[in-house]
């Protein structure tokens, strides 16, 4: 099976057959609809989280960053390391709090690696998207091998904190797992922080200026080098947060990133390059349609149908859902 189809299995929340039988038995469709809707939202939230970092590095900076998945993987292993540090050095009563620390730790480690990557490689590749694709793919392979060398080839498990076990019983037959709710919350917080940074801070204004007109931004006294480096590092850091969240969904391994890279690009391209709103709508669109198709067919076929829809949609609107339109860009 293709590697990216595996990710979809992880995302599959409900046992479909059992579910339909149950529904047919009782003839209640309300819980089915709510359950599927929640499932769709949950898939969307994960898609959005893995795509947000890419929306910056690819969407804003036009770097086809194939190592994005590996930055997610780095975030996941950072969480694993934080967990191990807590087990080794702190009393077990503290263990549950490791995850609170793991989120900023994943961000910072991925941020730092993004910074190194930008400084050593990416800065030579601006304006050359195809070269950046090949080079970052190479980086991706190297990072995977590095993870294999350090942590070993088999998957490792990250134990979720106990306060995320169980779920919220919405009604008879519909339980919303806390982990899923937590991820949805994490996405909302991340989005809000990104919005504040990009659209409300001085650094964000400089960043948007550089991405829109590099030469003119430089002529106004903005250090474009510093802006480029920070922007790429922030995109990488957000990938790290996504990796941290993925540890809640199952075991993690060196090839974790390869499962998600296709999805991430799909969301950004469908949403329209360069717009945060587009990425959100893209993730929701793919997540909800996927849940729907998956419910009607099977996990694999559902995904194939989603891909077909995306291909057809991009034929119709090649620039994605939210395209930039203004007088000066014509």
């Amino acid at each position: 099976m293709l590697p990216f189809l595996k990710s979809w299995k992880v995302l599959c929340l409900f046992d479909r057959k059992a579910y339909t039988q149950q529904v047919h038995k009782r003839g209640e469709f309300m819980e089915l609809i709510i359950g599927q809707l929640f499932n769709g939202m949950s898939v969307s939230s994960i898609l959005l989280l893995i795509a947000l970092g890419l929306a910056i590095t690819f969407g804003l900076m036009n770097v086809i960053n194939m190592a994005h998945g590996e930055l997610i993987m780095i975030g996941a292993y950072s969480t694993y390391l934080t967990q191990n540090l807590f087990i080794d050095y702190l009393p077990s009563s503290m263990f549950n709090w490791y995850f609170v620390l793991a989120i900023p730790a994943s961000f910072l480690i991925a941020f730092a690696i993004g910074l190194i990557l930008e400084f050593s490689l990416i800065r030579f590749l601006y304006g050359r998207p195809l070269d950046s694709l090949l080079a970052t793919w190479g980086v991706a392979l190297m990072l995977q091998q590095l993870a294999r060398t350090i942590f070993g080839a088999p998957n490792v498990g990250v134990k979720s904190p106990t306060w995320l076990d169980g779920g919220w019983m919405l009604m008879q037959g519909v339980v919303l797992p806390y982990k899923r709710l937590f991820i949805i919350g994490l996405v909302i917080v991340t989005l809000f922080a990104m919005y504040l940074y990009i659209y409300r801070s001085h650094a964000g204004r400089r960043m948007r200026a550089v991405m829109q007109n590099r030469e003119m931004a430089a002529c106004l006294g903005i250090s474009t080098r510093r802006v480029d480096a920070t922007t790429f590092a922030i995109g990488s850091g957000i990938a790290g947060i996504a990796g941290c969240a993925l540890t809640l969904m199952g075991p993690i391994g060196p090839a974790l990133g390869t499962y998600y890279i296709v999805d991430a690009f799909m969301v950004v391209v469908l949403g329209g390059v360069g717009k945060l709103v587009g990425t959100i709508i893209g993730a929701l669109g793919i997540g909800l349609t996927n849940t729907l198709f998956e419910f009607w067919t099977t996990a694999s076929l559902g995904k194939v149908l989603v891909f077909l829809c995306i291909v057809a949609f991009l034929q119709w609107k090649p620039k994605g859902l939210v395209a930039m339109r203004t007088r000066s860009l014509d």
């Binding site: 204004r205 400089r206 829109q212 930039m324």
Partner: peptide, 25 residues
């Protein structure tokens, strides 16, 4: 200070943000 040919205004930024960027230098 530089007023280039073709103005080179940042199209997606508001007018206020464009002026604020002038303060960078």
């Amino acid at each position: 200070g530089y007023v280039p040919q073709g103005r080179e205004i940042f199209p997606q930024l508001t007018v206020f943000e464009n002026v604020l960027l002038g303060l960078e230098a």
